[in-house]
């Protein structure tokens, strides 16, 4: 196989990695917000439930969570939902791995939402009481205070820790190969198994490095753009 053929083959896998990355961000980042609010709730049961969920999700390996999401519904209801989804989309539309990818996306979104929620919570709790009080004495409502005063300060503070998580995320996508989703590492292993080529496995690092390089630049710009004020 030529270098170009290997590159194209690996790139197909990297597109799946990017898909997992994008969907996790798009679903996990918003989902983290209600979890953060629940963790800060003054209503004890809500707070406890939220904290327990975060504890479990952060306390169990993501790979195990992928297995659980993929296999447990089938074991419980005797209907292997994700395997059927795989077959259905493959037979009707020729799309491979759809059920497996769906399971991975769900596991990743929940997992990252919990990590994000803790970053949000830390950001929100770091804003001084005085900012809320200044809003209150000006007769603003709680929601106006949060949207117009608190939010931007929180965003400024959470960009660095969020950048860290986002960079970790693209590398975590490799875990998807535990249920044989054809992301880039799985593709490289495929080459090792079928063509006895080991170097593509190491070559995958270049894909990650380039992408993380781009992310670093973009996130750095966001951070810079938000640095026009100091809180």
């Amino acid at each position: 196989m030529s270098f170009l053929e290997v590159t194209a083959f690996l790139f197909d896998g990297f597109l799946i990695s990017l898909l997992i990355f994008a969907v996790t961000l798009l679903c996990g980042a918003p989902l983290g917000l209600p979890i953060a609010f629940c963790s800060m709730s003054r209503f004890k049961p809500v707070k406890v439930i939220s904290k327990v969920i975060v504890w479990i999700v952060r306390g169990v390996p993501l790979m195990l969570q992928i297995f659980i999401i993929y296999y447990v519904p089938g074991l419980l209801f005797h209907v292997p939902i994700f395997s059927r989804m795989d077959r259905f989309f493959f037979i009707n539309y020729g799309i491979q791995d759809s059920g497996r990818i769906a399971a991975v996306l769900i596991a990743f979104s929940i997992n990252y939402a919990c990590y994000f929620s803790e970053i949000y919570r830390g950001g929100i709790e770091s804003i001084s009481r005085g900012q809320y009080e200044a809003g209150y004495v000006l007769g603003l409502t709680k929601s106006q205070i949060f949207r117009k005063i608190i939010l931007k300060q929180v965003v400024q503070r959470i960009v660095p820790p969020m950048s860290n998580e986002i960079i970790t995320l693209i590398k975590d996508t490799a875990l998807a190969n535990c249920i044989i989703v054809c992301e880039i590492i799985k593709q490289a292993k495929e080459l090792a198994a079928t063509k006895a080529l080991i170097w593509p496995l190491f070559y995958t690092g270049v894909f990650y490095l380039v992408f993380v390089g781009i992310l670093t630049i973009v996130l750095g710009r966001v951070e810079k753009k938000l640095s026009y004020f100091r809180s």
Binding site: Q131, A134, Y136, V137, G139, K142, F229
Partner: peptide
């Protein structure tokens, strides 16, 4: 009630010891 209290606050203004200006504005 929250809403009554919010309205009532408008009768008073308060200047804080440590200013509490909104940093992003």
């Amino acid at each position: 009630s929250d809403e009554t209290i919010r309205q009532n606050r408008l009768h008073f203004g308060l200047v804080f010891q440590n200013f509490n200006l909104f940093p992003q504005y």
